[in-house]
């Protein structure tokens, strides 16, 4: 009996708090929020959105292309290649992406003067490398990160392809390359397809970190707007809504692709 009363009280309190929060947000949206900055910052936001999407798509493609050999050598490669691939995955998955991005952007950048000491022509010949935009460093970091996470998954996928199918391919007299390109890789990719959507969403959710190295992606643009307009919440809320839309778009897109690829169940 008392348990029921306590439950009821707790439930009422929680509901009251939630309702108060919802009302507060609604009140703020209607009366206190200021969206006058939005129209003139739209081009900036569009540019940021484009950079975020570019960062996501390129890093997923490059990362996946790297992940295939990383997964493959762990299954069939010589021991030293397998060991280094496994170490690569462990290191990428065991350290924060933020530290990786800092290391690649500031760390590699700080090496340039030292290279210049050893190789005097470095500054003249590689001026493009020194002037390189932060975007490319971020892209490198994100691609390596995606390769690390996806490489581990590809390893499992290569192992998950039924042995009999590979033996059948070999029995047909296919060369190892042909076995890989016609049977092993397509089957492995089909196996990872359901998990790929989740991985891409995770990758999308890590792209705002690029702003830590001055890339003007959605996050960077939002930060600039915040500093220009002194509005804290409106830009951040818009940012959250845009990321949510992107997430649902990715999930929806991958489920569409998955339905197109036939699979025997």
């Amino acid at each position: 009996m008392t348990l029921h009363v306590i439950k009821l009280v707790i439930k009422t309190i929680i509901l009251a708090v939630l309702a108060a929060m919802a009302l507060g947000i609604l009140y703020w949206l209607v009366f206190a929020s200021d969206w006058s900055w939005l129209p003139k910052n739209l081009p900036l936001l569009a540019k940021g959105l484009w950079l975020t999407i570019l960062l996501l798509v390129l890093s997923v493609i490059i990362g996946f292309l790297l992940a295939v050999p990383i997964g493959l050598v762990q299954v069939t490669g010589p021991w030293w290649l397998a060991a280094s691939a496994r170490w690569f995955c462990t290191v990428i998955r065991g350290t924060p992406l933020l530290v990786q991005i800092w290391l690649i952007y500031y760390g590699v950048g700080s090496l340039f003067p030292q290279i210049g000491l050893v190789y005097p022509g470095f500054k003249e010949n590689f001026i493009w490398l020194i002037r390189l935009d932060a975007f490319w460093y971020a892209l490198l970091a994100f691609s390596l990160s995606f390769a690390g996470y996806e490489g581990e998954i590809m390893r499992g996928a290569f192992l998950g392809v039924p042995r009999g199918e590979l033996e059948a391919a070999r029995a047909f007299g296919m060369s190892p390359w042909k076995v890989l390109s016609r049977v092993w890789l397509p089957r492995a990719v089909r196996l990872v397809l359901p998990t790929l959507a989740g991985e891409v969403v995770l990758q999308l959710k890590s792209t705002p970190l690029a702003f830590a190295v001055t890339v003007m992606d959605l996050m960077g643009v939002t930060y600039k707007i915040r500093q220009d307009t002194f509005r804290t919440f409106e830009p951040l809320m818009l940012l959250a809504v845009i990321y949510m839309c992107l997430t649902f778009l990715i999930v929806w897109g991958f489920s569409f692709v998955e339905k197109m690829v036939p699979q025997k169940r």
Partner: peptide
């Protein structure tokens, strides 16, 4: 909601919204 928005954005929003 929480799983569809980047952690960094959520942390920023909650950090500022919460303290305000």
């Amino acid at each position: 909601l929480v799983r569809a928005v980047p952690e960094l954005v959520l942390i920023l929003i909650l950090y500022f919204a919460g303290s305000t």
